[in-house]
């Protein structure tokens, strides 16, 4: 049972423990955002500008298409830089 304040600390999604390996061995990659974890800090849009643009309020809008290898590299650096761990590849 989670304590009442578990959410205020914004615990990562429990599916997230698999996230590191989730994209391994796939031919195609897409980038996704956990919109609850994301706080619109914007590192991702700086590091992967071809894949992620921000909306009116500063939140990332990732491209909804398969990424090429160069884009995947950029997204991986964005994932590593995200302070909220809100970005992942599928």
């Amino acid at each position: 049972m989670a304590s009442p304040d578990a959410r205020s600390s914004r615990r990562p999604d429990r599916g997230g423990q698999d996230r590191g390996g989730q994209d391994r061995g796939r031919d195609t990659h897409r980038v996704r955002v956990n919109p609850i974890a994301c706080e619109g800090i914007g590192m991702c849009a700086h590091l992967a500008p071809d894949v992620i643009v921000v909306d009116d309020w500063g939140y990332p809008m990732p491209a909804t298409r398969d990424l090429d290898r160069r884009e995947v590299r950029a997204v991986r650096s964005a994932i590593a830089a995200c302070p909220r761990r809100a970005l992942f590849l599928t």
Binding site: R7, D13, R14, G15, N34, I36, F88, T90
Partner: peptide
């Protein structure tokens, strides 16, 4: 039902 608040939650699974 998992003991948290009744608001949506993001799930990868």
């Amino acid at each position: 039902l998992d003991g948290g608040p009744a608001v949506p939650w993001f799930r990868t699974v």
